[in-house]
Simulated scan of single mutants.
Amino acid sequence: MKKVRITQTSSAIRKSDKQKATLTALGLRRIGMAREHVLTPQVKGMLKKVDFLVKVEELS
Rank of each mutant, 00 (worst) to 15 (best):
R14S: 14
D17N: 06
T24I: 14
G27H: 01
I6G: 07
M1R: 12
G32I: 01
V43T: 07
A12R: 08
A25C: 07
G27R: 00
M1E: 15
A12T: 13
A25E: 11
L39N: 05
V43Q: 02
G45R: 10
G27E: 02
L47I: 10
A12K: 09
V4P: 00
P41S: 08
Q8C: 07
V50Q: 02
M46V: 03
R30E: 15
L59A: 03
D17T: 09
K18V: 13
E36G: 07
Q8F: 05
V56N: 00
L23F: 06
R5C: 09
E57I: 00
R30F: 09
I31C: 04
D17I: 08
V56C: 01
G45P: 08
P41I: 02
P41W: 10
R30S: 14
K49Q: 09
K2C: 06
T40H: 13
A25V: 07
T22N: 06
R5I: 07
V43C: 01
E58C: 01
V56W: 00
K15M: 13
L28V: 03
E36M: 08
T24F: 15
K15H: 13
L47C: 04
L53P: 04
F52K: 11
E36I: 15
S10T: 12
Q19K: 14
Q8E: 10
T24E: 13
D17G: 05
F52N: 12
I13G: 01
R29W: 05
D17F: 06
A21R: 09
Q42E: 14
T24C: 15
G45D: 12
R14P: 08
D51M: 11
K15W: 10
K3I: 06
G32N: 05
V56R: 00
L47K: 04
T9R: 07
G45K: 09
Q42T: 14
V43K: 00
R30L: 05
V4F: 00
S11D: 11
D51K: 13
R35P: 07
D17W: 01
Q8I: 07
V50L: 02
H37G: 11
E36Q: 08
Q19D: 15
A25L: 10
V56T: 03
R5W: 02
L53F: 04
K49R: 03
G32H: 03
M33W: 08
L59W: 07
V43M: 02
K48L: 14
T7L: 10
L23Q: 08
P41V: 04
I6M: 04
F52H: 15
G32Y: 01
Q42N: 12
D51R: 11
I6F: 00
Q19Y: 10
V50Y: 01
K48F: 14
K55C: 04
G32D: 05
S11L: 02
I31H: 06
M46W: 11
H37Q: 07
V4M: 00
R30P: 06
D17K: 03
K48Y: 13
T40R: 12
E36H: 04
A34P: 07
K15T: 15
R29K: 09
V38P: 12
D51S: 15
H37C: 11
R29N: 15
Q8Y: 06
K3E: 12
S11M: 03
K44N: 06
I13L: 08
R35I: 07
T22I: 09
V43L: 01
T7I: 09
Q19A: 15
